[in-house]
Amino acid sequence: MKYIYGRGPVIEALKNEEVEKVYIGKNATGSIKKIIGMARDLKVPTVTSDNEKLEELAGTKNHQAVVALVSDFEYIELEELINKLEGKENAKIFILDKIEDPHNFGAIARSSNFFGVDAIIFPNRRASTVNDTVVKASAGAIYDIDVSKVTNISQAIEKLKDAGFWIYATDLEGEDIRSCDFSGKVAIIIGNEGKGVSKNVLKNSDKIITIPNFSDFDSLNASVAAAIVMYEMFR
């Protein structure tokens, strides 16, 4: 069990029936009424709490007058994900290669949900996991997308290849994304914030792609880069 906070994330968690209890700030208004109604319909208990209690549970003052106790996040096994997408000819997956900042993870999940990405894959070591910061940064969108946590990215790539996926890795040097063919089953790799995609993962990729820049500044935030690639894939 863990606590999440913020109106958007709590609403999404309620939609996915992940919530065990909701703590509501005294005299809270606006979309709080929607949250109370959703909780009532799902028979989720609500507790009226003062601001100090909400800050204690959320670990921040930026709780928007609502905190929820939620079940541990449920990941999907890679094999189950592959089977689920077997019949989808244009399935799209994003692989996060050691993304460490939970804000980046959450922002990528939010963009993935917006553009219609089918799933996110990430390693279980030296990477951010799904926590309350990821939930908040994703505005709750993390609950609406399949997320698979794997032991080894390179092994996961081989399994995806066997399932018919083309693997594209992002890097500073590669084919311009504007000329790439993203049709069919495609998995895009977004690298670590400082080191980029690891060498072994680059070697296992079918193609290396790059976002063209128009200045002397040669790097983008990982979540921004992911969103740009998503736009190009789906436009």
Rank of each mutant, 00 (worst) to 15 (best):
R125M: 00
R125H: 00
T129R: 08
T129S: 04
D132L: 03
D132W: 01
D132S: 10
T133N: 05
A137Q: 06
A139G: 13
A139M: 15
A139Y: 13
I142W: 13
I142R: 14
Y143A: 09
Y143F: 15
Y143K: 10
D146C: 14
D146N: 15
D146A: 15
D146W: 14
V147T: 12
V147Q: 04
S148P: 13
S148T: 14
K149N: 10
V150P: 05
N152A: 03
I153D: 12
I153V: 14
S154G: 12
Q155L: 09
Q155I: 10
A156M: 08
A156G: 07
I157N: 11
E158Q: 13
E158W: 06
K159H: 08
K159F: 12
K161P: 14
G164D: 09
I167Y: 07
I167G: 07
I167R: 12
Y168L: 15
Y168H: 11
D171N: 02
D171C: 02
L172S: 00
E173K: 10
E173F: 00
E175R: 11
E175P: 01
D176G: 10
I177K: 03
I177F: 05
I177D: 03
R178D: 06
R178S: 13
R178P: 03
R178M: 06
S179L: 09
C180N: 10
C180P: 02
D181R: 11
K185Y: 13
V186K: 13
A187H: 14
A187G: 14
I188H: 13
I190D: 05
G191D: 00
G196Q: 00
V197L: 10
S198D: 01
K199F: 07
L202Y: 09
N204H: 12
K207F: 04
I208V: 05
I209S: 05
I209Q: 03
T210C: 07
T210P: 00
T210M: 04
T210S: 08
P212N: 05
P212Q: 07
N213H: 13
F214T: 11
S215H: 10
S215D: 01
S215N: 09
